[in-house]
């Protein structure tokens, strides 16, 4: 999903930077607030960012005969809400743009918008929806991470299509063209990301259930006096 350095016309690059900036600033505030109100969650916050660091470095072969990578932003979005991931995802993309020549500074805004804004929000929305419909934590986490991952790559396809519309079929045709490069490759990877995120959440439930309760991912246990309000 990394649009390479210089591969968006200046106007598009600037527009996506303007679109992403408020989310990143808001995200930075959210991180500061999270750390201030709940200092004990600092370590888990770091781990959620690190998870995205690992997953976005792993280029995994896919059924189309090309390679792509997961984004790892679904975990943090489910645990800490999407604004936090807007900042953490930007840090990951900045590292890759500056040190790895992967993505770029001029395309940072567009890449941030797909991976650090839309992906986490789709993941979080999916998570809330599945939980509200009565789905368990497992299915909700799996679907959240997988759909967040796919959404990121769909946004990238649209961004490239807007900048490079097809000569005959226009933007619509270009969406299909870039979508066939990114989105189809990404389907098995999205499943992988869903499974890995599910694995991490299952391990978290085992080693730090109290932390998950504080973040509202697990319900408060029935032994406490507030059990009635949980209603589960």
């Amino acid at each position: 999903m990394h649009i390479a350095e210089g591969y968006l016309p200046p106007l598009h690059a600037a527009a996506w930077a303007v679109a992403s900036a408020p989310f990143v600033v808001h995200g930075a505030r959210a991180v500061v607030q999270q750390v201030r109100t709940d200092p004990d969650s600092k370590l888990l916050l770091g781990a959620a960012g690190a998870f995205s660091f690992v997953l976005s470095a792993l280029k995994i072969p896919s059924v189309t005969g090309s390679c792509s990578h997961p984004t790892g932003t679904g975990l943090g979005a489910v645990l800490f809400r999407p604004p936090v991931m807007a900042l953490l995802g930007t840090v990951v993309l900045f590292f890759q743009a500056v040190l790895l020549a992967h993505g770029g500074l001029t395309t940072l805004g567009a890449n941030v918008f797909s991976m650090a804004v839309v992906g986490p929000w789709v993941a979080y929305g999916t998570y809330r929806l599945v939980r509200r419909l009565g789905g368990g934590l497992g299915p909700a986490v799996f679907l959240a991470a997988a759909l967040g991952d796919l959404a990121t790559y769909c946004v990238t396809s649209v961004q490239l299509a807007l900048a490079f519309p097809d000569a005959t079929s226009g933007v619509g045709g270009a969406v299909v063209k870039f979508g066939s490069i990114f989105a189809i490759t990404q389907i098995p990877l999205a499943v992988s990301e869903g499974l890995l995120t599910l694995l991490v959440v299952r391990l978290l439930v085992r080693v730090s259930p109290d932390e998950l309760r504080r973040l509202g991912v697990l319900p408060t246990p029935p032994a406490t006096p507030t059990a009635k309000e949980v209603g589960a």
Binding site: M1, H2, I3, A4, E5, G6, Y7, P9, P10, K59, P61, S62, T64, G65, S66, C67, S68, A97, V98, A101, H102, G104, L105, T106, T156, L160, F164, D166, A167, A174, K177, F178, I181, F182, T185, Q186
Partner: peptide
């Protein structure tokens, strides 16, 4: 398959459909 990166394939697709596009900035 070649198992090249999908990011690179997208670059190729751009160069094919818009041969006159010059990347206006390169990695620092």
């Amino acid at each position: 398959g070649e198992f090249g990166g999908s990011d690179g394939l997208a670059e190729q697709a751009i160069t094919e459909s818009h041969p006159d596009y010059e990347p206006w900035f390169s990695s620092i």
